[in-house]
Every structure is written in structure tokens, then in C-alpha cells.
Amino acid sequence: MNSSALREGTARVLFSAAAAVSVVAVVLICLFLFVNGVPAMAEIGVPEFLLGAIWRPANGLYGIFPMIVGSIYVTVGAVIVGVPAGLLCAIFLSRFAGARMAMLLAPGVELLAGIPSVVYGFFGLIIMVPIIRGLAPGHGPSLLVAALLLGIMILPTVITVARNALDAVPRRYYEGALALGADHERAVFCVVVPAAASGLLAAVVLAVGRAIGETMAVIMVAGNQPVIPGSLLDGVRTLTANIALEMGYAAGLHREALVATGVVLFVLILLITLFLNAARKRGGR
């Protein structure tokens, strides 16, 4: 074997090993989740676990339905708050802002991504919760605050991914629209933005993943009652909060039920991602 073949062989092994690390990690995490979570689900009973409305581990009641609903509510709220603002901001940065304006704004967006989630939570607790309390006495930590805060937290994801998608739209589409007599706004909103639709949906997918998985900030502002919220001002507990709040002291079936909560979260994220990706592929065609 000559030396170049040897070198290539070594490189191949190294790169394959590096690639394998991430795959192995995913497989191991899945394995851990399902091995530890599924037996608990079977013991509690799948319908009782998924659709049970009462979570009271002390009494042996393990219904996580309120947390499933809570996670979905909070995520939908965050998307309603964060996605329109993020997309418009990305369109502005990509197509309207001058070079100087973009140079000022883009680092701001990056900074937003670098703030630790506990700091966001702190901001929510100290600033947003008292405002809500002032407007609606008796309320404070709530679905509303969690959704608003998460909406802000997903902004950098939405903006960065959407802006990249918009920047990647070939110049010839924009020029083609102008050459037909369209003004800048029409060319951007009716040609460039639709041309980037697939990338914009990818931004939404990532934002949903970020919102549904966020834990710390949500715990700090959401109230965490394991009850289905009746209004925007009621407290809410998400799947992630459920795990993080109780894992420290749980034991036995309680502990396994929390791992099973992780399984449900995992499957939920998987379903949403698959669904949105399918929509993206169909839209992209």
C-alpha cells in the first residue's frame, strides 16, 4: 500500500468516527429515554398517563395531559409573538436596511442569542410579571408571560435563519420583478419572500423546537400549576418544567414517570418537525 492510499484510509476512518459520534449520541439518548420511560408508561397505563388530567405523584396519579396542553399552548403563543416579528425583522435586515443599519442591528440580534435563558427568566420575573400583576390584579406568572418571553427568546433563531434564506434568493428574481415595473416592496414581498418560503419555514421549525424545549425561563415565569389553563392569565406547566421541577427529589415510579414525560416531549418534537418539514417540501415543490 503506498503512502497516499494510507493517508486517505486514515482520513476516512477519522472522519467516519467523527460523524459517528453524533449518530451514536442520538441513538444512546433515545435508548436511555425509551428503556427508562416506556416501562413506567406501561405500569401507569398509556391512556391514564397521556390523557389523565391530574398529576399528583404523592397519591400515585400520573396524568400529564395538562403539561402536554401547556407545552403546546406556550409554544403556539411564542410562535404567534416571535415569528411575525422575527420574519419582518429578517426581511428588513435582508432587503430594506442600509449597510450601516444592518451592521448595527445584526450584532444586536446575535447578542440576543447569547443571553443565557436564566437571565431571560429573571427579566420576565422582575419586569414582565409585575406589569401583568399591575394590569390584572391576582395574576402574574402565567401563560401570557411565558409566551411573550419565549417569543422574544426565539427571535434570534427566526431572524438569523430567515435572513440567510432571504439573502440566498438569487438576484435575478428581484431584477426580473423590477424589470416588469414592480417597485421594491412588491418585488420583495411578492417574489423574493415566496422564493425563500422553504427557508422561512425552516426558521419556524427551529423556533418551535427552541420554544418547546426551553425550560429554565419558562419555570421562572409560568406559575407551573399542573392544571390546564383556562385563560391567558392562568399559570401553566410545560413538559420540560415538569421534569426539571421534580427530578431532584423524585424516586421510584415517580422518577420513571418523569423520564416517560421526556419520551412524550421527544415524540412531540419529532412529530412537529416531521409535519413542518413535510409542509416545507410540499411548499418548495
Binding site: P170, R172, Y173, E175, G176, A179, L180, V191, P194, A195
Partner: peptide, 13 residues
């Protein structure tokens, strides 16, 4: 004054 470009540039629609 309409224009046809060097590279065909139909919009992705």
C-alpha cells in the same frame, strides 16, 4: 421598456 435577461429567470411560481 421590458427586458429579457441573459439567464432565463422565471419566478419560482
Amino acid at each position: 421598456v421590458g427586458m429579457v435577461f441573459q439567464q432565463p429567470n422565471p419566478f419560482p411560481m
